[in-house]
Design a protein around this nucleic acid. Sequence first.
DNA 1: TATGAATGAGCATTCATTCAT
DNA 2: AATGAATGAATGCTCATTCAT
Lengths: 212, 212, 212, 212
Amino acid sequence: MSDIAGPRQRRKEARPGEIIEAALILFHQKGYAATKLDDIARAAGVTKGTLYLYFPSKEALFKAAISETIHPNLDRIEELALKSTESATIRLRTAIHSWATALNECKGSISKLMISEAGNFPELTDFYIETVIKRSRALLMLLIKAGVDSGEFRQTDPDMLARILFSPILLTSIWRHTYASQDPITYDLNQLAQFHLDIVLHGIAIAPEHTL
Amino acid sequence: MSDIAGPRQRRKEARPGEIIEAALILFHQKGYAATKLDDIARAAGVTKGTLYLYFPSKEALFKAAISETIHPNLDRIEELALKSTESATIRLRTAIHSWATALNECKGSISKLMISEAGNFPELTDFYIETVIKRSRALLMLLIKAGVDSGEFRQTDPDMLARILFSPILLTSIWRHTYASQDPITYDLNQLAQFHLDIVLHGIAIAPEHTL
Amino acid sequence: MSDIAGPRQRRKEARPGEIIEAALILFHQKGYAATKLDDIARAAGVTKGTLYLYFPSKEALFKAAISETIHPNLDRIEELALKSTESATIRLRTAIHSWATALNECKGSISKLMISEAGNFPELTDFYIETVIKRSRALLMLLIKAGVDSGEFRQTDPDMLARILFSPILLTSIWRHTYASQDPITYDLNQLAQFHLDIVLHGIAIAPEHTL
Amino acid sequence: MSDIAGPRQRRKEARPGEIIEAALILFHQKGYAATKLDDIARAAGVTKGTLYLYFPSKEALFKAAISETIHPNLDRIEELALKSTESATIRLRTAIHSWATALNECKGSISKLMISEAGNFPELTDFYIETVIKRSRALLMLLIKAGVDSGEFRQTDPDMLARILFSPILLTSIWRHTYASQDPITYDLNQLAQFHLDIVLHGIAIAPEHTL
DNA sequence: TATGAATGAGCATTCATTCAT
DNA sequence: AATGAATGAATGCTCATTCAT
């Protein structure tokens, strides 16, 4: 009932989140420079002035939107894969699938946004590289090395293999957010992940039973 | 005669190309909206007004830059792989390596630019999807199907496999152009392609001799 | 009882005065346009909304601040000089010194503020000119004429002399409030007034005994 | 004939001066903050964007306007009084009259502007104090000391006397620019200067012949 | 063909004012 | 009486585009 509030309702707690959500979608669709604060305000159901109650500038809003979205996802993946006592094969599959699932559910793609805007926001990019990219890749490399050590996988280059394992999922996720209307993708990221894992694990497995 | 022009003197036929080259680099670095015509003009060694002698608007220049860069690359790949009478395995390897080589040499990445700006230039995106993306993928799928038909590869999903085969190369190329300073990549795209092909072909090969 | 209120608790009757005091200082320091209501509110220890309980607009607050500060000072000077039955010389000295003393003690300078903002507030300026400037000058001219009539001073131009007599004090007062840090003034306005009066009275006196 | 140029005429050389002149008048009338760039542009006969071809910001335009106006006047006064071999009395009269003449002719009053805006532009104020105020006062003090040394004037406080000598002229000049309509002044600054000098020199002269 | 001064619509940001609480 | 979140008109500044030279 009080949900249907008038135009001057007070929402101090909820506002920043609503604004960030609206901003992220628009930044993602149009890029930072092409996104107008008017658009963000309208999408968030407020006026332009209100944005400045919560964020001191457009740039600050952009950075906040990126950071806020990144942070809650950071720890989840690592937990999943590291705690487990299963075989490296299983843990690798689990890690990648949980990541694919996360990407499947995202409305926007931080990866795409960072690719587009990295050149214009060097410090933000540094932060993203350190906290997201390197950390994610380190996890994959850890699992790959574990598999090599345990005799599940052949000797291989963990850096390249890590890059190869996440590329199709990440690029397809970006693709879907970019070319959804012109080139729709009919399967979900988990299917793609499974398909790729089956091939790669078969390709690097020492014994067939280590494929799954 | 006009060939012997001074080093600073430019032949007028060369102008559009020089402008496009400068524009492409800047669009790629900063994105469309953040790139100023002043910057492009300065980088091309002309003044802002001169741009309008060759391109009616910023948007037209952007589209021209994309199109001009795409076109000369379009036919090359197809020729390479289709003419050959080798095995599907060989032709697949050849196609992917020649593509990796092409990407290796590019100063900018049209793929990255299209990902960034697709939302703001729908018609251009349509054109890109039809002439580049779908055509490239169709080529890979053709070769994959040929390999399945010839008994070199197991039965598989050509769309997914095509996507998987170009993802690491394309994403790594984009990566390199985006995060070069923060996260340098030490190997080239051909090494990555070979590494991936070895694994995947081994994974999908019916007999070991079809891996190479 | 309400006198025993906590140090932070303010009696509501005091509010307008506290706001005016804070406003006057800020208007004086930064000028009308550069002073934000937020600053005034903060300086007065209230919130921005509260200002509107006492003053209908920023302009009204400004005018009130000027008027409130002017009024209590209006009558004082006239009393001092007019009641006296001393010689014109003495009364002139008394008037100027009491005025110098008043200016010495002021934290802000209405004169400076009016000089700065006269162009933007014509009606307020009219009011200030009529009630302060012309009245003050009329007083000085009255005393000068009295001195001429009584044979204390030579025949002279009362308007010019009045202007000359208050200029050093007024300008120095403004100066002190404007360039305090860059160009500090080491003597007080009474010293300056006495110095000037000694010279001028000696200059216009008919007989030496009329200098003091 | 070509003077009646169209709206797109080119005036690169003349423009900065025209803009500064228009800006100075408006800053003077309304103060810095209350002066809109649109107003300045309109008064200068250009559009807002043109201002930015010549000045990088409103603040830079303001500072340029002050500086440009100050500089040409700096050396003039000193020359006048210092070269002369006349008596100190004559040189003092000459200096003050030439200064009064300069102020008489000015459309705006930098002094007024600096009083209004000193608080908001500390570095500009420092510059003004050092190059204009202190230099002018030093000149007057020099002449006063010369008069004392030559036996023309009694022993006196040069700082105070200097301040007293320029106050009426300066304040009246400011007054005229501030309250022209409400409180017009009927005599010019040279009359005022002569009136004051006659009194003061008579007041401080050791012998009557040193008054003129 | 080439220039670059000038334009003006567009956008980020500010801040006096309002109003639900 | 007091708050402070929200508003929106105003304004400094940018930049794609035009055009006289």
